[in-house]
Simulated scan of single mutants.
Amino acid sequence: MAKRLWVERAADGSWEGHSDDGAMIKFGRGEGLFTPGDLAQIALAGCAAMSSQFAVEHTLGEGKGAKVVVNAQYSDDDDAFLSFNEQVSVDATDAKLSDEDADKLAERMTRHIEKGCTVKHTYERETPVRMSINVRN
């Protein structure tokens, strides 16, 4: 069963995303806040980072991980992202990997991301969104 998620307005005018298991994230518009568009990009980057974590830790050791930078092409006319560009990098300098081992790690990371990144899979296809509005009076 999917985790229940919801968003509510906070007293300071920002927004808070919540889950049944107690997770919370603050967002909105303004200094120090992520916008929903930022969160969409962070979700993509976070998914790649977490999906590749096993491959990175297996090669470089526990606690190691990738840095994922995401840039989006945005259309003002459509008010939508047209594409995303991810740069996934791993600092393996301490491990002194050979070129062959570095290539193998990159291939394993790619396979893990391609197999396990739900956000990437979702963004790569047209995903319907159904919405209902209930005004309680």
Rank of each mutant, 00 (worst) to 15 (best):
A49C: 10
N137P: 11
M1N: 04
T93Y: 04
K64S: 03
A43S: 13
D79A: 14
N137R: 15
N85R: 14
K120M: 11
V88N: 03
M131T: 15
A48C: 08
D77M: 09
F84M: 10
V70H: 00
D94I: 08
H121D: 11
A106E: 15
A11E: 13
A23F: 12
V88C: 04
S83P: 00
I25C: 04
H18C: 06
A2E: 08
M131L: 14
C117W: 08
D79M: 13
D12S: 00
E114N: 14
G22I: 10
H121I: 15
V90T: 09
E16A: 06
Q87Y: 14
Q53M: 13
S98C: 03
E8A: 10
S98Q: 06
H58L: 10
S75N: 01
H121W: 05
D21L: 03
S98V: 10
V119H: 08
L97S: 04
F84R: 07
A102L: 11
Q53S: 13
G30N: 03
G32H: 00
A80T: 09
N85Y: 11
G22N: 01
R136P: 11
V56L: 03
D20E: 13
T118R: 12
G63Y: 00
D12Q: 00
A48E: 01
A2M: 09
W15F: 10
A95T: 08
V69A: 12
F84W: 14
H58V: 06
I25H: 03
